[in-house]
């Protein structure tokens, strides 16, 4: 049973990393949102499994929050936003897909190397989880760096936060209030960024953040 529990936890966390990779090469916004919903789904499954094996019922609440907000509410809201902004046809990456994927693989290797070295002697589940969580965080950051469109930067940010939740649930005894406060702060950040997006749009007729730079008189 222990062996199986460990393998399933490992599988789900690894799946989260895999979905992060999938997000990296999506160049259409709708597809990106769909993958993000899948990301949240896998996260919810992973957190739910952790709740099961750790006998921590409050983690079910976290899984529920992940499922409802990140799996449904936020992707749908972003969907509507993209519709209203009329940018569903836009394609953008700053760096090509190939180099991005290579960089992502390097980051995963780095996070595994770091975590396995640092957390020697810790609970093996938490150890693997932490390595994967760091990989997800780094991939989210990579996505924020390589994208130009504000919506995909928001998605990158959200996936980064998924990695944080994964790390938090992997560690035993993390109180629920921490997770709830993280979830709410993300929700508020989402709302702020949403409003911000519309403001950018109103002013510059695009959500390409390069417009901001042009407005500041920078050369790109």
């Amino acid at each position: 049973m222990d062996r199986l529990a460990f393998d399933i936890a490992h599988l789900l966390a690894g799946g989260l990393v895999l979905v992060s990779f999938m997000m990296l090469y999506q160049d259409r916004l709708y597809a990106l949102l769909n993958i993000f919903a899948v990301h949240a789904l896998v996260l919810a499954a992973s957190v739910g499994w952790q709740a099961h094996i750790q006998d921590a019922p409050h983690l079910y609440v976290t899984a529920g929050i992940a499922l409802v907000f990140k799996g449904l509410v936020i992707p749908m809201a972003l969907h509507r936003m993209i519709q209203r902004l009329g940018i569903h046809r836009e394609i953008e990456t700053v760096i090509g897909v190939g180099p991005t994927m290579l960089a992502g693989m390097g980051l995963v290797a780095l996070s595994v190397a770091v975590m396995l070295q640092v957390t020697e002697g810790a609970d093996p589940i938490a150890r693997e989880d932490l390595a994967f969580a760091l990989a997800v965080v780094l991939l989210g950051l990579l996505m924020m760096v390589t994208r130009r469109n504000a919506v995909s930067q928001v998605v990158g940010f959200m996936s980064l936060e998924n990695g944080l939740v994964l790390a938090a649930t992997g560690a035993r005894g993390m109180p629920l209030v921490v997770e709830i406060s993280v979830a709410f702060s993300i929700l508020i950040a989402f709302i702020v960024i949403g409003i911000f997006l519309f403001r950018i749009r109103e002013r510059f007729d695009t959500v390409d953040v390069q417009a901001l730079d042009r407005h500041r008189g920078e050369r790109q």
Partner: peptide, 24 residues
Amino acid sequence: QFLTIRRYLALVFLALVSLLLVLA
């Protein structure tokens, strides 16, 4: 003082990655 938002993010990202590299 006058970088683009994306470059600031990239700076943060590179700093994080290089620190992790040192750690590894």
